[in-house]
Nucleic acid binder design. Structure first.
Lengths: 159, 159
DNA sequence: GTAGGTGCAAACAATTTGCATTCGG
DNA sequence: CCGAATGCAAATTGTTTGCACCTAC
């Protein structure tokens, strides 16, 4: 809910508190991640965008920063089957209720922010003695609308 | 439920019915996948194992076979964040009820075969107009037993 | 017979790493 | 100041592809 700048400050504090230095590159990267929170950017995409903000940044730095942020659980490193890692900001609200719908026809990727798994997690604790700290839920399928129209655009999932 | 050989025959039929030839390499690969159904082998691991059965097979063939099997939905191509694709046999029973628990302490990976998402999928169809053909559910966390003992073995997830 | 399958090696793409230089605290 | 962070390029790693040969049907 916090404004962009507030979130940025908060993340920066997290970095500092862990003993990491606050460089302009890191700030620029976080800024992009915040700005594009809805998208699931790949490292390369982040790189291209950060570059507009900080032209002399190197790709390796972006990789290093993203890895660092993932370590601190500020972003989540994800994989959607295409060979690239994608990164997702984990703001407090969507930390534990953040699922994905992937359409095999139009390739659209939608986020669902409802807490569907709380009950299941309790059950895991009870029945399996497993304490969940994180989860990932993805549904693959098609939208009724996509199926109706024969809209076979660039479908990459099904060859 | 079927015995290994029966499953093999069935898969072979699936291949044939789609017009794909049944070569000894493919059979060997499927055989390994059946034998190691519980593990989530990477392509390289499959390669090493198939090699024992069929020493002159090439890595590329294994990749091609795995991709083919994934296309036919005989195996599922998965990603657990480490940079390698892993492959999971989808026998009929576990096609739609096949989830994972990943322990960050001991690194264990457990499969849960219960259908927990049927209800959610109906809801997706109703509320989002999205028809699910597949899903993936992973829980990351720790076993109570792992937490109790300070058993910090090779934990790779948390650095 | 022939189209599809294979093995090998080369090509690729994403990510990592070594190292000299720079910079934040 | 000093160690951590960066940029660059080279190295690695996982996966794909081109092509001549081979094999199942």
């Amino acid at each position: 809910m916090a404004a962009l700048e507030d979130q940025l400050i908060k993340i920066n504090k997290q970095l500092l508190s862990k003993g990491y230095k606050l460089t302009s590159q890191r700030e620029a990267t976080v800024r992009i991640l915040l700005e594009y929170e809805q998208d699931h950017l790949s490292a390369e995409e982040v790189f291209m965008l950060v570059r507009e903000l900080h032209p002399d940044i190197g790709l390796a730095t972006v990789y290093r920063t993203l890895e660092l942020l993932a370590e601190l659980h500020i972003v989540e490193k994800m994989n959607f089957g295409d060979g690239v890692a994608r990164f997702d900001l984990r703001s407090d609200e969507n930390a534990h209720m953040h699922h994905h719908l992937i359409c095999t026809v139009c390739g659209r990727l939608k986020e669902i922010k409802e807490d569907w798994l709380g009950e299941l997690e309790q059950r895991l604790a009870r029945e399996y003695g497993f304490l969940v700290t994180d989860h990932r839920l993805e549904f693959t399928g098609t939208y009724a609308s996509c199926q109706r129209e024969g809209c076979k655009r660039a479908s990459k999932a099904v060859s």
